[in-house]
Design a protein around this nucleic acid. Sequence first.
DNA 1: TAAATATATTCGAATATTCTAATATATATG
DNA 2: CATATATATTAGAATATTCGAATATATTTA
Lengths: 104, 104
Amino acid sequence: MKKELYQMHADMCKVFSNCVRLEILNLLREGELTVSKLVDKSGLTQVNISQHLSIMKSKGMVTSKRKGLNIYYKLSNPKIIKAFDIIREVLSERLTENKKLLGK
Amino acid sequence: MKKELYQMHADMCKVFSNCVRLEILNLLREGELTVSKLVDKSGLTQVNISQHLSIMKSKGMVTSKRKGLNIYYKLSNPKIIKAFDIIREVLSERLTENKKLLGK
DNA sequence: TAAATATATTCGAATATTCTAATATATATG
DNA sequence: CATATATATTAGAATATTCGAATATATTTA
């Protein structure tokens, strides 16, 4: 398999490597939201949310459309949430194992 | 959902955000391999492979066992490859779309 | 067109990641 | 025990990421 493809893959995965972006992706799971809704729901600053949305848009993970003053963002591909959930499962299973080990 | 969980999730995803680690994970897809096998198959240096294996071990993505001089590494959870593959699909679909756009 | 609202961009300091060079450790074997 | 082999660790320069402060832009409405 080509190194170049691994690099593109890694670049796409960098989106998942930040907790703000993960929170945004998770908030977009049910459908599109405006920037201000994302700000409200996350409690993060508008600037920070916009910065991360910009990164995710450039990586092709989200798309946006303007309606008046608002801009709606949504996931570009529903598989993104599948990936999110599988990694959550790996994490959960790991945490469960750690608990078991502590219980012994 | 808790911020702390997003952080742990992001930390786990950092494993996927590097092309060397992705290559290692992909090489381990069929089963365990020694460090030197990974070096041979990837063409990367031993030191670099060991560094990345160490990172992945600390994040709980791989486990290892020694047999004589060799140390065998394997994926800690088969879901890791599912996540790998889903992200590859998102990437492929994105590349296909880009091609279409160029073709127009 | 001026003001209000929603969103984006730029800059820079703090922090984190990556690779290479050098070296260390663990195990097996003569 | 000395040597060879396999693997791990450390240090540090180069590079990348992150966030907040300040500011800019786009759209609507009075």
